[in-house]
Nucleic acid binder design. Structure first.
Lengths: 205, 205
DNA sequence: CTTAGAAGTATCCAGCATGTGCACTTTTTG
DNA sequence: CAAAAAGTGCACATGCTGGATACTTCTAAG
């Protein structure tokens, strides 16, 4: 099932594909994953239900494709630049917290959807695992930086610190604090930054 | 739909109900939520598919019922006693970390299932929210205790500290660290305790 | 400007899961 | 033993996915 669909050559095709992705995202954010049926998407795009399958082999593939779509639209790379441009590793850690608070809220719905769908769908699982590996790599880069500068607090290692950081990039955590606990993005960023520094950074009074 | 089903009076009925819950849990843990169809459960229990609906009005209600079932079987209350028996608030916080590492791994599959199902099913949502509120109340009790003893670090308040603690009781976090990062329960407990103390406790060298 | 091939439509279909209705049998219990 | 409760078997409506087929419409390259 769900054999990937080759890159569209046609301009018309590309436009339709984008329209489908945009409509899917909107529908997902407005009405949730359960309401996201192929029929509902088709109607919203103004295309036949059968037509969707010309662009996405399955519902799972469609949801999975949202992953990269929102990363582009919401500027994942751009937001990450702030982290690596920091002057030192503790500052980078703080920037990482702010990056989470800046970027992730915008993709929460998609994150959660991919996460649910991944259990059935190999395509979604692939996308999820790729994104996850990238996330973990970023975390490890942070802890390595800390270690190099001698700022990684006892008893953390590059590995265990990275794992901890990675685990806190969770739609459950971020969504819970924002939506259920009513934190603002600013509060989220500041407080995560605080947690990170106190937990991981040595000599940070 | 999914009108609740009244307390069974019959001994036979109670036995069957327990058998259904046990089989459901086993199936869920072995083969995941997707494989958890009413037909599969029925076969495993050795009861007709129709018979399940005599005990649980819907699949959602069945999954939701697992919540309390595992809490009983795995001794939620008993595990929590360690927390409140602690001599002081920082010790309680440490005990809380160990409680998470002791209890939660045993109910991860059920936690995740209820969380997914709750989006469709009102019954599951009710159960989830009740459990969640209890969780949050526990966290607040911890931060209140800290505050009373003057051990709550700047800039946390009873409320914001509780929210933070609450957000870290997440199957995504716990499951991720245990399963994907390969932490042992001991490591999880120790490291969470460390994170909690450094972040929330004042004057804890 | 024409024409081959791609994009898209309309309709039907099979598969599979949920949950309900109904007549029936078996077990429990007073 | 008799009534009530528990459980069975089967049929059925509904809702979704994804595949098939024959058809029309657009677009891109010669």
């Amino acid at each position: 099932m769900s054999r990937s669909i080759e890159q569209p050559l046609n301009a018309r095709s590309r436009r339709t594909r984008q329209a489908i992705l945009a409509a899917t995202r909107a529908l997902l954010e407005e009405r949730g994953l359960d309401a996201l049926t192929m029929a509902a998407v088709a109607e919203r795009v103004g295309v036949s239900r059968r037509g969707l399958y010309l662009h996405f082999a399955s519902r799972g593939e469609l949801v999975a494709a949202l992953f990269d779509y929102v990363a582009g639209v919401e500027g994942l790379e751009r937001s990450l630049e702030h982290v690596w441009a920091a002057p030192d590793s503790p500052a980078a850690l703080t920037e990482w917290a702010h990056h989470l608070a800046r970027y992730h809220p915008n993709v929460l719905a998609v994150d959660r959807a991919v996460q649910q769908v991944r259990t059935h769908d190999p395509d979604a699982r692939r996308h999820y695992e790729r994104a996850n590996a990238a996330q973990l790599a970023n975390c490890r880069r942070l802890t390595r930086w800390l270690a190099r500068e001698g700022r990684l607090a006892e008893p953390w290692t590059e590995e265990s610190g990275a794992a901890l950081l990675w685990s806190l990039v969770s739609s459950e955590v971020i969504g819970g604090l924002l939506e259920e606990q009513g934190w603002s993005r600013e509060e989220l960023g500041e407080r995560l930054a605080l947690l990170y520094r106190r937990t991981l950074v040595a000599g940070d009074g």
